[in-house]
Amino acid sequence: MKSYDVVINHKGFVSLDVIDDILHHLKTYLQSRQLDKKIKKRVYSLAVECVDNIYKHAELNKKNHKLIESYPPRFIVERIGDDYLIHTGNIILNKNVEIIVEKIKLLNNLNQKDIGVLYKESLSNAEISEKGGAGLGLIVMAKTTGQKIKFDFERINDKFSYFAMQLNIKK
């Protein structure tokens, strides 16, 4: 049986301080392990993209305390043998569901070479939003993992859905 670690298991509101804590903890863990530099770097950089994404929805969470109790933001990093899994979860607006689904489906249907081309095009065309997002996060995730992005949506009510995503980082 493969060895198994839960490296990070965060459920609850994500603030800048929480992000700093999570990333500090992850960095310390990665430094303590005998791992390829490449894998360490990939796990860390994907973690940053994921927590940044969750943080961008923080405003939504602040205004919906009750909802958060049942659907808390989630960020989990697991090690299974030599592979790492990152699970994220957060509330999003229903109107954004389709945009995200289309984006992930497109990425999951592209090969690595085409993802590279898309990344370069997107860099030149990206506009930075007020929240500091460049819309490049998902592309970076597909590019860095080289794996399909697993995802799921659960409809909560007329306004919100819960978006769950899983990234697989293989040695």
Binding site: K41, Y44, S45, V48, E49, D52, L123, S124, A126, I128, G132, G133, A134, L136, G137, I139, V140
Partner: peptide, 15 residues
């Protein structure tokens, strides 16, 4: 290390 939003700005410097 740089995140994806920084990559956008680094690409602006490269332009």
């Amino acid at each position: 290390y740089f995140n994806s939003a920084s990559a956008k700005f680094i690409s602006d410097i490269l332009i």
